[in-house]
Design a protein around this nucleic acid. Structure first.
Lengths: 201, 201
DNA sequence: GGCCCTCCATGACAACCGTCATGGAGGGCC
DNA sequence: GGCCCTCCATGACGGTTGTCATGGAGGGCC
């Protein structure tokens, strides 16, 4: 019997996934959590074999939870499930020791199979996402460019970004321009979109 | 026995919800669909009693599907389920004849109860969302302002928006400025964010 | 009809943003 | 040390954007 921890902030989805996993005879959902912090607490309390984490949770993302889980409970394999599959997230997840990475578009049997696979010590990442991650490669943005672009994500004017980053407005414009050029974007706003789509910010 | 149609583009979530509903003795999932068009086709073929539709689907949103369903299959009650609950969407959904409206954060028993409620002819909207919709009120944007703001959503330059809307660039700027003013936004990009958050575009 | 209101459309002006050229700071390599 | 490279920072220039004042079109109301 594989003991599973399930974490997702959307109660309906979490309950539904629990119902789905419970249909399998060799799987048992021993704990559920609605946030990253709760997931860690539940993991300590119930020592599950496999943790299935949603990527997006209100307090912290599933990847940082996975990273902490790797030190707290090394024997527990982690599977990340996400609505929007971004190549950058996959890369960060694998660096954090995640053993399975799936978009929510996969069919139900895939999830149960992946839970079994990672429990046996195997790995699984969605083939389409893997291809995208390989072709996309690393982020072309320098650290400052990524910082500034992130601050620009809310649509803030340049001067406000400059104040927050402790930079001259001219420097901010330059970083934004450089980032937009690297991302093939006509202006910083579409640059933000592109970077988000790739998981680079 | 209540015959249910389930539509959601994320296969995993759809399967999980199906498993959840199948646990209830008085509910039966008679058809599933991964897109709006498929949902309509399935509805014609299987004449379900209740349709549970995701708000966001690749081809068309759940509300437009609900509107068409109301004419094609008047006896079928519609429940909309959504990840991000926006007040504007709720309003549009009710105008389209939707009888139930839920965010995915609700607990599992709520969904099954709502399916039963709408099947009996009742209605249900999430209380928190209802309160937000009432306090938020109608969109303050004029039709043209909403059109132009929607075209600006991708970060396109003004001239491109003007070409698509068959307007002068000056007029486009004016509409954007007016919309931003009404929304309390410093520029059109945050205006887009605000309008999206309220479901006005 | 006459009046008022909102919405739509346009152009002028100032402020903002993207691009360029330039130079300093730090790390890898011979 | 000397060289080269990338990253970071700054200011000047031209195009784009946001704001304002203005006027026409259409609908509701007396």
């Amino acid at each position: 019997m594989i003991r599973v921890l399930l974490a997702d902030d959307e109660n309906l989805i979490r309950s539904a996934l629990a119902a789905l996993l419970a249909l399998e005879e060799d799987l048992e959902v021993v704990a559920q959590a609605a946030s990253g912090a709760e997931a860690l607490a539940m993991a300590r309390a119930h020592t599950p074999d496999v943790a299935v984490l949603d990527l997006q949770m209100p307090d912290r993302d599933g990847i940082s939870v996975a990273g902490e889980l790797a030190t707290v409970l090394p024997g527990c394999a982690v599977v990340i499930v996400t609505g929007h599959g971004r190549a950058g997230h996959l890369k960060r997840a694998l660096e954090a020791g995640v053993r399975g990475f799936l978009p929510k578009t996969v069919s139900a049997p895939v999830l149960t199979d992946v839970v079994r696979t990672v429990h046996r010590g195997g790995r699984y990442v969605d083939p389409e996402l893997a291809a995208e991650a390989i072709s996309a490669g690393d982020s072309p943005l320098t650290p400052r460019e990524a910082d500034v672009l992130e601050l620009a994500a809310g649509g803030a004017p340049v001067e406000e970004i400059a104040a927050r980053a402790h930079l001259s407005p001219g420097t901010v414009r330059n970083h934004l321009s450089s980032a937009a050029g690297k991302l093939g974007a006509a202006n910083r706003h579409v640059a933000v979109e592109v970077a988000r789509r790739h998981g680079w910010i």
